[in-house]
Write a protein that binds this DNA or RNA. Structure first.
Lengths: 247, 247
DNA sequence: CGCCTGTTTGAGAAGACTCAAAACGGGTGG
DNA sequence: CCACCCGTTTTGAGTCTTCTCAAACAGGCG
């Protein structure tokens, strides 16, 4: 019954009942996808946005060379397919990483949010700004650090984002990605990912068994990778007041 | 007298007089910076946003290793320092690339936009979404392509963004960047940038004289780099109607 | 003229890539 | 319960791109 988007937004700001209603109305049409299934293909025409309500997905794009870059991972509460806000064609392919649930709504529905719930609109804008900064962090990671640091950063990012919706998680998590996929995310080949993971394990940074990854000493890995958590908090003090209830 | 932000936004959507007033009110405090000057330092506390009203700037961040990554270039009409929407501390350093003009306003001023001009707020959101996609493109570029392609992509991006405000520009532009700065933008060393530029020149992709760069055959360079222009158009058809004038 | 910043060139090293093949592991059908 | 299969992980060897260190070379400015 709990809307995933609402619960993510509530993490930042307690919503009024009216705001909740509006958010909930964006999550009516829910669909289930199996691990590996494609929700939306790059280049497809769409005017819809997608919300993760359970599981993981990623968005990726493909180069003419055939290489693929994974652009982002999406966790419960995340808004996906944001490019359809600005264009009629999707910019990235959405693929289910694990079995997952996704609901979608037409971008037209956002008009109501902007018109009737300015505070909620401001929150969406702030979340988008935060995502922009998180993207910048990844840019730094790919442009200016070596393989080991890139993978460390990826793991820390996943860990911190899983924690937003799952308070249980302490120092390990299940990573439903192949090494080839990790490579597509951090800009390395699968072969090099393998060697690097191995090195990191030997160096005592991580432990692996099956698909479970354990971060041995998070604080020092954060230090090593220069990791910054961009999702935990955002400023809400400048927002306009919530709309009055129409009584 | 023409507000730079307004004129960029008008490029996407004709603004009502009321909308224009609100936008113009964000550009009152204008300051001048000389090439190389720092407008805002990474980590500094701020609650302000910045608008480029003339010239170029870039935002960058520094790794503990001392390496720097240039995250974005900013042209007239661009909103900078967007991280202050979400946090009290700046995430990136803003530096003037050329002599330039910048105006700034407190993030609190955005509240009025969201409250009174929902259509304008939607436009800002859509622009932010488009920037997110542009950032994804750069991620692909750094993660999955070689030096030559990265530099080609950078040049094409600059060219197309300069054209938005300067219709004159055809196939060449002044590049006020050192090779070290180009390297910081595309994730290469200055030495390698030098060699790559030289190669590109020999291959007949570009011509250089002083700070002027000429793209010899734009269409085939676009093809070569898989470049996509993310700034020219955005969809506005889902926006809520403009607020009525209060008479 | 000399200095400073930026560009160019050289040479060797390192990180990451390619191609290739072997080992592993979980799932399926006999 | 075993044998087989397929996708994934691991390992090996050689290559290429990019980096580092270093020094020479412009060009503008006081």
């Amino acid at each position: 019954m709990d809307s995933a988007l609402a619960s993510k937004l509530q993490h930042y700001l307690p919503l009024t009942p009216e705001e909740r209603d509006v958010v909930d109305s964006l999550e009516r049409r829910e669909r289930r996808f199996r691990s590996g299934e494609v929700v939306l293909e790059e280049g497809e025409a769409t005017d819809r946005l997608y919300v993760v309500t359970g599981g993981w997905l990623h968005s990726s794009a493909r180069l003419s060379s055939g290489n693929r870059q994974i652009l982002r991972f999406h966790f419960p509460g995340d808004l996906m397919g944001v490019s359809s806000i600005a264009w009629a064609e999707t910019a990235a392919t959405l693929t289910a990483v694990s079995d997952c649930m996704v609901s979608d709504f037409p971008r037209l529905a956002l008009a109501r949010v902007f018109k009737e719930q300015p505070r909620l609109a401001a929150l969406l804008y702030a979340v988008s700004a935060a995502e922009n900064v998180a993207m910048s962090d990844r840019l730094m990671s790919l442009g200016r650090t070596d393989g080991r640091t890139r993978i460390a950063t990826l793991f820390l990012d996943i860990l911190s984002r899983l924690r937003i919706t799952d308070g249980q998680i302490v120092d390990s998590f299940e990573l439903p990605l192949t090494q080839a996929e990790i490579g597509d995310a951090v800009g390395l080949t699968k072969v090099h990912v393998n060697r690097t993971l191995r090195e990191m394990e030997q160096a005592g940074m991580i432990e692996r068994s099956g698909k479970i990854v354990r971060i041995v000493d998070e604080a020092s890995l954060v230090e090593f990778a220069g990791f910054k958590d961009r999702h935990y908090r955002i400023a809400t003090d400048w927002f306009p007041p919530a709309a009055m209830a129409v009584v």
